[in-house]
């Protein structure tokens, strides 16, 4: 088992606390099948892969990848970049990832952490620049929060020293509420994937729960066109009915 990065500095009143879904991503990315797949796809002789995680939350997943690049990719020279709609998550994750990278004692073996940017999904990412995409979305079928308050709720209120209770509730709602079928945010993200993944080697990992109807989602991805593939490469909570979680790997085979 590879070590889980520390998130003890993060305030979980307004940032998603690592949970079963987060840990399933860690386990899947470091599984022997996925590390074999990734090491083969990103051979040491090729340019360093850029890993983007959308919705970093506490940063636990991106920090894990950054700190364990050698085990996952067979190389340490990877780049990591994150986004989150919640500015408090951006600050928290930035600290989580930089601390995890600095824990690597061999300085030349450290991976390169770029930044966490505050934004909607991958809207600010240069087209076709992402080699590995990771997303643990807000996937619970629950009404989406009212975004009209976002600008006010995304910062400590002027003249105050801390966030309000309503503000914290809103920020946490953003982390789990996924609208109809829990798929509203994920569907918007899936639409962007073909435009952000690098040509020839880009690959994505997206978490779904049973209520998201993973089989239908995978078929929709395969219908994007020739070469697009979608397979479940990790699951958890098999007995817990709708809570069952899937990690779907999305990639394109060039013919």
């Amino acid at each position: 088992m590879l070590p889980t990065p520390s998130t003890s500095h993060v305030c979980f009143d307004r940032v998603y606390e690592p949970a079963e879904d987060s840990y399933l991503l860690l386990d899947t990315l470091s599984s022997s099948t996925e590390s074999a797949f990734l090491s083969e796809r990103f051979l040491q002789s090729t340019a360093p892969p850029l890993v983007l995680e959308v919705g970093v939350g506490s940063g636990v997943v991106l920090a894990f990848v950054a700190a364990n690049a050698r085990s996952i990719f067979g190389r340490h020279d990877i780049l990591t970049l994150g986004t989150d709609i919640n500015s408090f998550a951006c600050q928290a994750a930035s600290q989580t990832v930089s601390t995890a990278v600095k824990d690597e004692e061999q300085h030349e073996e450290r991976s390169i952490f770029l930044d966490i940017v505050n934004g909607d999904l991958a809207s600010s990412i240069r087209p076709h620049s992402i080699d590995v995409f990771i997303f643990n979305p807000p996937y619970v079928p629950a009404e989406l929060p009212d975004f009209s308050r976002h600008t006010d709720y995304n910062a400590v209120p002027e003249g105050k020293t801390k966030t309000s209770f309503e503000q914290d509730s809103y920020l946490l709602e953003l982390s789990y509420a996924g609208g109809e079928d829990g798929m509203v945010v994920t569907n918007r993200m899936l639409e962007q994937i073909p435009d952000i993944l690098s040509k020839g080697r880009g690959v994505g990992y997206v978490l779904l729960c049973a209520q998201n109807k993973p089989d239908i989602v995978k078929q929709q991805i395969r219908d994007w066109g020739s070469g697009w593939q979608a397979e479940t490469v990790g699951t958890s909570g098999k007995k817990a009915g709708w809570e069952k979680l899937h990690i779907v790997r999305i990639w394109k085979n060039d013919d």
């Binding site: 709609i85 966490i116 505050n118 909607d120 809207s123």
Partner: peptide, 18 residues
């Protein structure tokens, strides 16, 4: 113009958040 504050760039667009 996208603001950078405390080292974090903000790419949120008011229009996208409606």
């Amino acid at each position: 113009e996208y603001a950078v504050k405390e080292g974090v760039a903000n790419f949120l667009l008011p229009g996208h958040l409606v």
